[in-house]
Simulated scan of single mutants.
Amino acid sequence: MLITVSGPAGSGKSTFAAALANALEVDHVSGGDIFREMADERDMSLVAFNELAEEDDQVDRDLDRRLREIADENDDLILESRLAGWMAGDHADLRIWLDAPMDVRAERIADREDKSVTTAREETTARAESEAKRYAEYYDIEIDDRSIYDLVLNTSRWSPAAELEIVLAAVESYDPDDDEGRAPVTGVDYDF
Protein backbone atom coordinates (compact mmCIF):
# COMPACT_ATOMS: atom_id res chain seq x y z
CA MET A 1 0.00 0.00 0.00
CA LEU A 2 1.44 3.39 -1.02
CA ILE A 3 0.57 6.02 1.58
CA THR A 4 1.56 9.67 1.30
CA VAL A 5 1.97 11.98 4.26
CA SER A 6 1.99 15.70 3.56
CA GLY A 7 1.60 18.89 5.52
CA PRO A 8 3.26 22.20 6.33
CA ALA A 9 6.44 22.68 8.33
CA GLY A 10 5.93 21.79 11.98
CA SER A 11 2.85 19.65 11.41
CA GLY A 12 4.62 16.50 12.59
CA LYS A 13 4.69 14.73 9.23
CA SER A 14 8.23 13.31 9.48
CA THR A 15 7.73 11.91 12.97
CA PHE A 16 4.32 10.53 12.06
CA ALA A 17 5.46 9.01 8.75
CA ALA A 18 8.33 7.20 10.48
CA ALA A 19 5.95 5.82 13.14
CA LEU A 20 3.43 4.72 10.51
CA ALA A 21 6.12 3.00 8.44
CA ASN A 22 7.32 1.20 11.55
CA ALA A 23 3.78 0.10 12.47
CA LEU A 24 3.09 -1.18 8.94
CA GLU A 25 6.61 -2.62 8.52
CA VAL A 26 7.23 -0.78 5.24
CA ASP A 27 9.90 1.66 4.11
CA HIS A 28 9.61 5.39 4.70
CA VAL A 29 10.98 7.84 2.15
CA SER A 30 11.28 11.45 3.26
CA GLY A 31 11.43 14.37 0.87
CA GLY A 32 13.69 16.07 3.41
CA ASP A 33 16.12 13.16 3.26
CA ILE A 34 16.14 13.31 -0.53
CA PHE A 35 16.76 17.06 -0.36
CA ARG A 36 19.75 16.42 1.94
CA GLU A 37 21.05 13.74 -0.47
CA MET A 38 20.78 16.23 -3.33
CA ALA A 39 22.80 18.77 -1.31
CA ASP A 40 25.44 16.10 -0.62
CA GLU A 41 25.56 15.19 -4.33
CA ARG A 42 26.49 18.81 -5.05
CA ASP A 43 28.84 18.95 -2.06
CA MET A 44 26.80 21.81 -0.60
CA SER A 45 25.64 22.59 2.92
CA LEU A 46 21.88 22.56 3.52
CA VAL A 47 21.89 26.32 3.99
CA ALA A 48 23.70 26.87 0.70
CA PHE A 49 21.48 24.35 -1.09
CA ASN A 50 18.33 26.03 0.29
CA GLU A 51 19.62 29.34 -1.03
CA LEU A 52 20.25 27.76 -4.42
CA ALA A 53 16.72 26.32 -4.43
CA GLU A 54 15.30 29.82 -3.98
CA GLU A 55 17.18 30.98 -7.08
CA ASP A 56 17.09 27.85 -9.26
CA ASP A 57 13.71 26.18 -9.85
CA GLN A 58 15.46 23.04 -11.08
CA VAL A 59 16.25 22.10 -7.47
CA ASP A 60 12.56 21.80 -6.58
CA ARG A 61 11.79 20.12 -9.89
CA ASP A 62 14.54 17.52 -9.37
CA LEU A 63 13.27 16.75 -5.87
CA ASP A 64 9.68 16.45 -7.09
CA ARG A 65 10.72 14.28 -10.05
CA ARG A 66 12.47 11.90 -7.65
CA LEU A 67 9.38 11.75 -5.44
CA ARG A 68 7.22 11.02 -8.48
CA GLU A 69 9.58 8.24 -9.63
CA ILE A 70 9.63 6.68 -6.16
CA ALA A 71 5.83 6.70 -6.07
CA ASP A 72 5.63 5.14 -9.52
CA GLU A 73 8.10 2.37 -8.62
CA ASN A 74 6.80 1.35 -5.18
CA ASP A 75 3.61 -0.21 -3.94
CA ASP A 76 4.43 -0.64 -0.23
CA LEU A 77 5.83 2.61 1.08
CA ILE A 78 5.22 5.69 3.18
CA LEU A 79 6.18 8.69 1.04
CA GLU A 80 6.45 11.92 3.02
CA SER A 81 6.90 15.47 1.77
CA ARG A 82 4.95 18.66 1.41
CA LEU A 83 3.84 17.61 -2.11
CA ALA A 84 3.86 13.81 -1.71
CA GLY A 85 0.08 13.54 -2.17
CA TRP A 86 0.29 15.50 -5.39
CA MET A 87 3.49 13.87 -6.70
CA ALA A 88 2.23 10.32 -6.10
CA GLY A 89 -0.99 11.22 -7.91
CA ASP A 90 -3.58 8.51 -8.31
CA HIS A 91 -0.91 5.85 -7.66
CA ALA A 92 -1.25 6.55 -3.91
CA ASP A 93 -3.70 4.32 -2.09
CA LEU A 94 -4.15 6.69 0.84
CA ARG A 95 -3.22 10.39 0.89
CA ILE A 96 -2.92 12.02 4.32
CA TRP A 97 -2.57 15.72 5.16
CA LEU A 98 -1.35 16.67 8.63
CA ASP A 99 -1.76 20.20 9.93
CA ALA A 100 -1.82 22.26 13.12
CA PRO A 101 -2.44 25.91 13.93
CA MET A 102 0.49 28.22 13.17
CA ASP A 103 1.14 28.92 16.87
CA VAL A 104 1.56 25.19 17.54
CA ARG A 105 3.74 24.66 14.48
CA ALA A 106 5.90 27.70 15.32
CA GLU A 107 6.46 26.38 18.86
CA ARG A 108 7.46 22.95 17.52
CA ILE A 109 9.87 24.48 15.02
CA ALA A 110 11.31 26.85 17.64
CA ASP A 111 11.98 23.88 19.96
CA ARG A 112 13.43 21.76 17.17
CA GLU A 113 15.66 24.50 15.74
CA ASP A 114 16.51 26.30 19.00
CA LYS A 115 15.12 29.70 17.99
CA SER A 116 12.45 32.04 19.27
CA VAL A 117 8.81 31.31 18.56
CA THR A 118 8.49 34.74 16.91
CA THR A 119 11.39 33.99 14.55
CA ALA A 120 10.04 30.52 13.80
CA ARG A 121 6.58 31.96 13.02
CA GLU A 122 8.00 34.65 10.71
CA GLU A 123 10.28 32.22 8.87
CA THR A 124 7.56 29.57 8.57
CA THR A 125 5.04 32.06 7.22
CA ALA A 126 7.52 33.40 4.67
CA ARG A 127 8.48 29.86 3.64
CA ALA A 128 4.85 28.80 3.22
CA GLU A 129 4.09 31.84 1.05
CA SER A 130 7.16 31.20 -1.10
CA GLU A 131 6.33 27.51 -1.50
CA ALA A 132 2.68 28.18 -2.37
CA LYS A 133 3.77 30.60 -5.08
CA ARG A 134 6.31 28.14 -6.51
CA TYR A 135 3.89 25.18 -6.48
CA ALA A 136 1.28 27.21 -8.32
CA GLU A 137 3.85 28.45 -10.83
CA TYR A 138 5.62 25.12 -11.41
CA TYR A 139 2.73 22.66 -11.38
CA ASP A 140 -0.53 24.60 -11.13
CA ILE A 141 -0.99 23.16 -7.63
CA GLU A 142 -2.94 25.12 -5.04
CA ILE A 143 -1.33 23.78 -1.87
CA ASP A 144 -4.37 24.81 0.21
CA ASP A 145 -6.60 22.48 -1.85
CA ARG A 146 -7.27 19.52 0.44
CA SER A 147 -9.72 17.81 -1.92
CA ILE A 148 -7.17 15.18 -3.03
CA TYR A 149 -6.57 13.97 0.52
CA ASP A 150 -8.37 11.00 1.98
CA LEU A 151 -7.68 11.99 5.55
CA VAL A 152 -6.85 15.40 7.09
CA LEU A 153 -5.70 15.50 10.72
CA ASN A 154 -5.09 18.43 13.03
CA THR A 155 -2.05 17.15 14.93
CA SER A 156 -2.57 19.59 17.79
CA ARG A 157 -5.77 17.76 18.76
CA TRP A 158 -4.37 14.26 19.30
CA SER A 159 -1.27 12.65 20.71
CA PRO A 160 1.11 10.98 18.25
CA ALA A 161 -0.20 7.59 19.46
CA ALA A 162 -3.81 8.63 18.82
CA GLU A 163 -2.92 9.96 15.35
CA LEU A 164 -1.34 6.61 14.55
CA GLU A 165 -4.41 4.76 15.84
CA ILE A 166 -6.72 6.89 13.64
CA VAL A 167 -4.65 6.29 10.52
CA LEU A 168 -4.19 2.58 11.20
CA ALA A 169 -7.98 2.27 11.47
CA ALA A 170 -8.25 3.98 8.07
CA VAL A 171 -5.62 1.64 6.60
CA GLU A 172 -7.40 -1.41 8.01
CA SER A 173 -10.72 -0.38 6.50
CA TYR A 174 -9.20 0.61 3.14
CA ASP A 175 -10.86 -1.01 0.13
CA PRO A 176 -8.73 -0.64 -3.03
CA ASP A 177 -11.76 -1.30 -5.23
CA ASP A 178 -13.86 1.52 -3.77
CA ASP A 179 -12.80 4.82 -5.33
CA GLU A 180 -16.30 6.31 -5.25
CA GLY A 181 -16.14 9.86 -3.94
CA ARG A 182 -12.34 10.04 -4.11
CA ALA A 183 -11.03 13.17 -5.78
CA PRO A 184 -8.57 12.35 -8.55
CA VAL A 185 -5.32 14.28 -8.88
CA THR A 186 -6.02 16.11 -12.12
CA GLY A 187 -4.80 19.20 -13.85
CA VAL A 188 -1.31 19.04 -12.39
CA ASP A 189 1.42 19.97 -14.84
CA TYR A 190 4.28 17.62 -13.98
CA ASP A 191 6.84 19.55 -15.98
CA PHE A 192 10.07 18.45 -14.34
Rank of each mutant, 00 (worst) to 15 (best):
F16H: 00
A106M: 02
S81F: 03
D191W: 15
T118C: 11
R134E: 08
G187W: 00
V5T: 07
A128S: 09
G89E: 07
R157G: 14
I96Q: 06
N74K: 07
E37V: 13
I143D: 05
Y174R: 09
A21R: 05
M87A: 04
S45V: 03
P8N: 13
L83A: 10
A23V: 07
D189P: 12
L2C: 02
E137R: 10
F49W: 08
T4V: 04
L20P: 05
S14W: 03
R65F: 13
D189E: 15
E129K: 09
F192D: 12
M102V: 13
A162D: 15
D178Q: 11
S81V: 01
Y135R: 03
D56S: 06
L67E: 04
L20I: 10
L94P: 02
A161E: 13
L2P: 00
Y190C: 07
I109K: 06
E73Q: 13
V5Q: 01
G85I: 01
D175I: 05
R68I: 15
A170S: 15
T155M: 05
A9W: 10
T155S: 10
V188P: 00
H28C: 11
L83H: 03
V26W: 00
S45W: 08
G187N: 04
D150P: 04
L63Q: 04
D56V: 05
R112D: 11
E142F: 11
D177N: 15
S147H: 09
R95Q: 11
M87G: 01
K115C: 13
L46W: 10
V26H: 01
A161D: 14
R146E: 11
A162L: 15
A19P: 08
I109M: 10
E163P: 01
E163R: 06
Y190N: 06
T4F: 01
L79Q: 08
A100E: 00
E122K: 11
L77T: 08
I96P: 01
A120H: 04
E131V: 10
G7T: 06
R82D: 00
D177C: 14
Y135A: 11
A183Y: 05
R157L: 14
D93L: 01
E80F: 03
R61D: 14
S81N: 06
Y138M: 14
A132Y: 01
D179M: 13
G31V: 01
R108E: 06
M38K: 08
D179G: 15
P101F: 07
L24Q: 10
H91K: 10
R36H: 02
E54N: 11
